[in-house]
């Protein structure tokens, strides 16, 4: 994802402009509101406009911030955070300086049964207490 505190947030997309520190703060408030946490209402509204406008976040994370698994864009509206502790500071850090986490292509490194075992493991930790269907 772009690093909005840099002069060129996304070298692959010159249409994405940098944001000011205040605008990044507004986006953080918007994400807090989407996650159902206490947020500054006015800042969250400004953040929503940025999210669906200039910042272009919706393009990958979808309009409701629930992500798009087809392209590996994480859900931003749930309580699971891939980086940091989910605090305002951690979210600010992610938006300001970007994240480039991508799952590497394992197709030639792991066998099909290994990939399946990993899929089952990931399912088991994301659905605690629920037995995955072995089929």
């Amino acid at each position: 994802m772009p690093a909005y505190a840099r002069p060129h947030p996304n070298p692959a997309d010159q249409n994405i402009r940098p944001l000011s520190p205040g605008e990044i703060g507004d986006l953080v408030e918007f994400l807090f509101r989407q996650q159902g946490r206490a947020a500054d209402t006015a800042a969250a509204s400004r953040g929503a406009a940025l999210y669906r406008g200039d910042a272009g976040c919706y393009d990958c994370h979808s309009l409701d911030a629930k992500g798009d698994s087809a392209i590996g864009a994480p859900n931003l509206a749930d309580a699971i955070t891939l980086y940091g502790d989910g605090s305002r500071d951690a979210l600010y850090q992610s938006i300001a300086y970007g994240r480039q986490g991508v799952c590497p292509a394992w197709i030639k490194k792991l066998s099909a049964p290994d990939i399946r075992e990993i899929a089952l493991y990931v399912y088991s930790i994301s659905h605690p207490g629920e037995a995955p269907n072995a089929d």
Partner: peptide, 8 residues
């Protein structure tokens, strides 16, 4: 205008 990053 207000807070700005250095590059801006």
């Amino acid at each position: 205008q207000g807070d700005e990053f250095y590059f801006a």
